[in-house]
């Protein structure tokens, strides 16, 4: 698979896909998208990079072990429900805040934190599996 064309295009493709995965993650609350599908897109971006350049560069680029990323997502998702306990509503109840940043109203919420957790779990798990399969192949 390591043809010149593929190797030349892979970094751009990876960067675009990671960017798109974050876009999909953020639009997910009211539109199609969300943490799960965003995570899948990001994981396939890492897989493409791995096919083009081999697994070690991907692992270096990710900095953390994919399982650590997944565990971080789990912790984040568990914590996303905790603020609702502090205001005496059931666990995981969505709490919203609308700060205005540079004249734009931002809708921030605990479901978004939960979704980011899901994103990390999916990226971590799927890229962990994909990378170890690619390692096996060489």
């Amino acid at each position: 698979m390591s043809t010149v064309i593929f190797r030349a295009i892979a970094p751009y493709l990876t960067a675009l896909m990671v960017l798109f995965s974050i876009f999909v993650l953020l639009r997910g609350h009211n539109n199609p998208g969300g943490g799960f599908i965003g995570g899948l897109i990001a994981a396939s971006a890492f897989a493409i990079y791995g096919i083009a350049y081999g697994v070690p560069p991907v692992r270096r680029a990710m900095r953390f072990h994919p399982m650590q990323l997944a565990a971080f997502g789990l912790v984040l998702a568990a914590l996303a429900g905790v603020p609702s306990l502090l205001v005496s509503v059931p666990y995981l109840t969505g709490l919203w805040t609308y700060p205005t940043l540079f004249g734009v109203e931002l809708a921030l919420s605990t479901p978004l934190v939960f979704d980011i957790g899901v994103y990390c779990v999916v990226v971590g798990t799927i890229s962990s599996i994909a990378l170890s399969l690619e390692e096996r192949e060489r």
Partner: peptide, 24 residues
């Protein structure tokens, strides 16, 4: 929700949080 009733979810939060932290 009464704080004592919130205890029902505490076992899940504790195990999930520390399980993830230990894995990290």
């Amino acid at each position: 929700v009464a704080p004592a009733d919130a205890l029902i979810i505490a076992p899940i939060i504790i195990t999930l949080f520390f399980g993830g932290l230990l894995l990290m």
